[in-house]
Design a protein around this nucleic acid. Sequence first.
RNA 1: GGAGAGAUGGCCGAGUGGUCGAAGGCGCACGCCUGGAAAGUGUGUAGGCUCCAAAAGGGUCUCGAGGGUUCGAAUCCCUCUCUCUCCGCCA
Length: 423
Amino acid sequence: MLQVNYIRENTQDVIERLAKKHFDGSKIIPEIIEWDNARKQTQTELDSILAESNNIAKQVGQLMKEGKKAEAEDLKNKSAALKESAKVLEAKMAEAEEKIKQLLYQVPNLPHASVPKGKTPEENEIVYQEGEIPTLHKDAKPHWELAKQYDLIDFELGVKITGAGFPVYKGKGAKLQRALINFFLEEATNAGYMEFQPPHMVNEASGYGTGQLPDKEGQMYHVGIDNLYLIPTAEVPVTNFHRDMIYKADDFPIKQTAYTPCFRREAGSYGKDVRGLNRLHQFDKVEIVQIQHPDKSYDTLNEMVEYVKTLLRKLELPYRVLRLCGGDMSFSSALTYDMEVYSTAQQKWLEVSSISNFETFQANRLKLRFKDTDGKTKLAHTLNGSALALPRIVASIMENHQTPEGIRIPKALQKFTGFDMIN
RNA sequence: GGAGAGAUGGCCGAGUGGUCGAAGGCGCACGCCUGGAAAGUGUGUAGGCUCCAAAAGGGUCUCGAGGGUUCGAAUCCCUCUCUCUCCGCCA
């Protein structure tokens, strides 16, 4: 959520920057300011009425003490009239506040200056590429066929007990999952992230805190009887740890990591993109989160990108880094880098990580603040990234490391799997 | 699930209708004291919104949340949430 004061002071600039995200702010932004003007004026009126009312209450108390009953009665009547007008103004306040909130919920975050123009994924900017794209033997297969051949993942069994998009991992397939989770958590710990095991369900307030609610309500699984949501990513519980917090500037950076399963309804997905492990309703992911001082958050973003690079390097996967264009970025991000691994068997790039700086967009909703060295309380910056999401990593390991003899496990992973080959 | 008790500032804790945004303590910050430290001592120490060009200062709201009674609510009433104790069930 953007801050009204910022919008007020940079109106034209805000509208221009929003255009890069293909959001037309020319109507809604002035509307927000208008409602805020109304809000301010109403509050000034309301405050003076309340002040008078408080004043009368004090006088009544005094008069009662002195036994001047008649005068006290007089003032009581006066107070009744004030109360009526206060009620009207209070309703007006509430209306304006609600309206402003509803409008602000619709406005996406402002893109960072470096965000490329563009509307479609094709217009994302490739900023880095590393690793050899392997030449595979002629019988090379996509992962869903390999999963069957080596009996690693049973999609049909998942359909039987739950539904499509809920695979069952078996044998070495299950062990590979566990190994990757351990590998990612150990790497993150070594990089200074504290490990957490958060709940896999969150309440409504947390959903609002990180922006899944109200707009993406249909994307989360909702347990109606207890009004809880299954988390779509560990970002939600971990970032919400910091809701309503005021840190000190030297508490930063706060670096946290968590493994959780992620649950996504993926309403509207269809076709070849959902084949095999490419898009699931439940998948595993290790997430990294940082809370940082606004002056340092872009250095931190780069640091996180560099960190994820080391993971892909250790997994011996060819990858590239994209700077997302305005049209492909998420609603709440200011700058996002996507990491994609090339799958030779599918002959396409698979997104395995997304690393974003949200600046104050999440912090504003979360009320995540810090006391700066100048003594002022300010909003902190939040960042997060996948490090990494398992399914497409599993797919690309299977596809890129396949040989006629079986699937080779990258060296860095072998101490976690306990085997070096799937055959 | 049943019964009871409770929720106050960073923490502990007083406060049962007015002078309470809130005693006292701890913690923290700054100063004095000291060769330095401890002890001692002094001062300060919530947040939101708003008025003011800004600073200073003022107004208003917030004692779990929401509503109500009252001229006036941390204090009384209602609803909800959460915590603790006991009972039941249970990995």
